[in-house]
């Protein structure tokens, strides 16, 4: 593995339990700047726990996590400043308008209104929702809320973007929009992305893949490399083979 300071995210031997339930078991992987990494796992694989640890909502009991060299235990404020996150569960305040939600987020990153205002407009325009900025969040559809959450996560110009099952419950168009938009961000801004999903087709051949199953990492590498090392012809086959060989077996993603 490379020097952690040069990595967008370095997860090293992380284990975490909730009482007797082991959610993560010796998880290690890393993400370089500009990487689009798909964290692939079934429901219950430990993806959300991993997100909670990377965003500092929980502290890992064992192992370490660092963001651009800032350890989450010792320099978590520095680490958090570089992270943008879209959680599986919506985190918008539904009683506030879209722009109130955005300004609230900007304030929580210490941004002045004069700086945040133009960025909010730019991000809302980018997702095609600038005309809805004065609508309350609860008036938006599920797909529109997701877009707003993504736009909000980008206001403070994060270097690492975390998305936990961002396309769950979205129609095909909204799903594709999000995927294309985030891939575009990687290319344009050199932003590192960790995209957690149980939908295999959200990883293309160029994506880096981390296969997480029952709290353990079963494979990491580009999708192509994971397919080749499994001896299968596609990522679905490789995923099936990896997870069927793992203790406890699996269901279809």
């Amino acid at each position: 593995m490379t020097d952690d300071a040069s990595l967008a995210l370095a997860v090293r031997n992380v284990s975490h339990s909730f009482d007797a339930r082991k959610a993560l078991d010796d998880v290690s992987f890393d993400i370089a700047a500009g990487d689009f990494t798909v964290l692939l796992g079934l429901n219950g694989a430990g993806k959300t726990t991993l997100f909670a640890l990377v965003t500092g909502l929980y502290h890992s009991r064992y192992g370490s996590i660092s963001v651009y060299g800032a350890d989450l235990r010792t320099k978590y404020l520095k680490a958090l400043a570089k992270i943008g996150a879209v959680f599986q569960q919506s985190t918008l305040d539904l009683d506030l308008t879209v722009e109130q939600n955005m300004f609230y987020h900007a304030a929580l990153h210490g941004m002045a209104k004069s700086v945040a205002g133009p960025r909010i407009t730019a991000e809302l325009e980018r997702i095609g929702l600038n005309d809805r900025r004065r609508d309350r969040a609860r008036q938006l559809s599920g797909g529109q809320r997701r877009r707003v959450e993504l736009a909000r996560a980008l206001i403070h110009n994060p270097h690492l973007l975390l998305l936990d099952e961002p396309t769950v419950g979205l129609d095909i168009d909204s799903r594709q929009f999000l995927l294309d938009h985030v891939r575009g961000l990687c290319a344009e801004r050199g932003m590192a992305v960790l995209w957690a999903t149980h939908l295999i087709d959200e990883a293309d051949d160029n994506s880096k893949v981390v296969v997480l199953h029952k709290g353990k990492v079963l494979a990491t590498g580009t999708a192509t490399a994971v397919i080749q090392s499994s001896g299968e012809s596609n990522l679905r086959g490789a995923f099936d083979k990896l997870t069927q060989g793992a203790p406890g077996g699996k269901g279809k993603p």
Binding site: T55, G56, L57, L77, K78, L80, A81, I83, A85, F87, Q89, S90, T91, L92, D93, Y104, H105, L108, H109, G110
Partner: peptide
Amino acid sequence: GSMKTLMISP
């Protein structure tokens, strides 16, 4: 879920 917005601010 909206408390996460607060808790992950730096």
